[in-house]
Amino acid sequence: MDFTIDFTKEQIESIEDILQDELIDLGVQSVILMDLAGNVIVNLDSGDSSHDVFSLAALAAGNYGAVSAMANIIGEQEFSLLFHKGEEESIHFSKVVEDLLLLTIFNKNVSLGFLRLKVAEAIKRIQMLI
């Protein structure tokens, strides 16, 4: 059996700190760091949401894979913005490194522009850890 990037307990804790600091503390409802097989690596939330993270991760992995395959068909490497906007809540996807995705769920109190900035910062910090 082969394994996703092996994370140590310390790495996971550091990633949690980064996500808490960059995203949750700013009003983001929940964040999921996951791999493209659909595994959940880290999951944090603000305490007032209880989403089914495993199902979300499975669907997000499929969705991300499907969108990437579409990009390839039209000759793009990837689409840089992956975002689904809802009435109350929205979902944003971002690639961290090959095979790792960061999924963010946020509501109207957080602007997309600000969120993208914060996600980019969080990703930069996570990349330095792994």
């Binding site: 059996m1 082969d2 394994f3 996703t4 092996d6 994370f7 140590t8 307990k9 996971i12 804790e13 791999d35 097989a37 659909g38 595994n39 959940v40 690596i41």
Partner: peptide, 15 residues
């Protein structure tokens, strides 16, 4: 590609 989470002591396996 199983995933081991050493913090939660949890393993995810895909079938």
């Amino acid at each position: 590609m199983a995933l081991i989470n050493p913090k939660k002591r949890e393993v995810q396996v895909k079938v």
